[in-house]
Design a protein around this nucleic acid. Structure first.
Lengths: 133, 133
DNA sequence: TCCAACATTTACCTTTACGTTAAGGTTATT
DNA sequence: AATAACCTTAACGTAAAGGTAAATGTTGGA
């Protein structure tokens, strides 16, 4: 069996365009937990990359690291415990609702930005026409 | 002519569910600039409310106050200066692009959350069926 | 008139999310 | 074997976005 491809912290940081400090910080906060080599070097696998991607995405939505930690927990639930699945589903429902609300608001903001642009474009045409005429 | 309805800082803060400190902080950062009564009390009008709404919305998308300040600037451009309109349009275009990108990512995340939920629901049904059977 | 409920500024405190040395160990290459 | 380019932990620093407290002024109502 071929062993899975692994990445060092430097490679990971470069790939995701974040600092090594940032990656280590996420580990401090329990969001990542890479393997270690015998010498203590961190080794990240595909799963860690997927988590990091989710973390960075969450950040861009304005979620705090703590919220992201909770969200990550959703994917890590012990799927053999009925009660835990139920609790996870309940919390997940809230996160989904909030995400939908943010989506809605962001759509609204996008609309408003487009309208502002429209007005400016129109006003610009007006001014340039006046200059020409 | 009837004078426009105005709100005190306490009313504003209550209406938008933020602290008075937060409102004053936004003023410190130049995002709001309310009138003052003779005694120095802040008075907010409809325009201030619209700005505050935009500020809070922007925050929920993960924009920093500085970015929000820039975005607010878009709506405040002197529409008599061709050059300024052009610069504003250019910056606005970037903001719009970024907003669209975030929208896309958020949609993706929403999908993923729904998928996680689906899996959990399925797994739960499985476990409950096993218990029954 | 006086008091409770508002408002003001100033100033220091806190949390989050990292940045930045410092001091040193590991690995790959020459 | 030396050296550059990695990595490690530890610790202090910092910017953003407010929280909190102190001392004081204002206003509306009994």
């Amino acid at each position: 069996m071929i062993s899975e491809r692994k990445w060092t912290i430097g490679e990971l940081a470069t790939d995701f365009d974040v600092s090594q400090r940032t990656v280590r910080f996420y580990e401090e906060k329990g969001l990542l937990s890479p393997e270690r080599t015998a010498a203590g070097y961190r080794l990240y696998g595909k799963r860690d990359r997927a988590r990091l991607k989710l973390i960075l995405r969450g950040k861009r939505f304005g979620f705090s690291l703590e919220e992201i930690s909770d969200i990550l927990g959703l994917a890590t639930t012990d799927v053999n415990e009925v009660d835990q699945i139920k609790r996870t589903l309940e919390y997940g429902q809230r996160v989904i609702k909030e995400t939908e609300q943010r989506l809605e608001e962001m759509t609204l903001m996008h609309q408003e930005l487009l309208e502002i642009r429209q007005k400016l474009v129109a006003r610009l045409a007006e001014l340039e026409a006046a200059k020409q005429g």
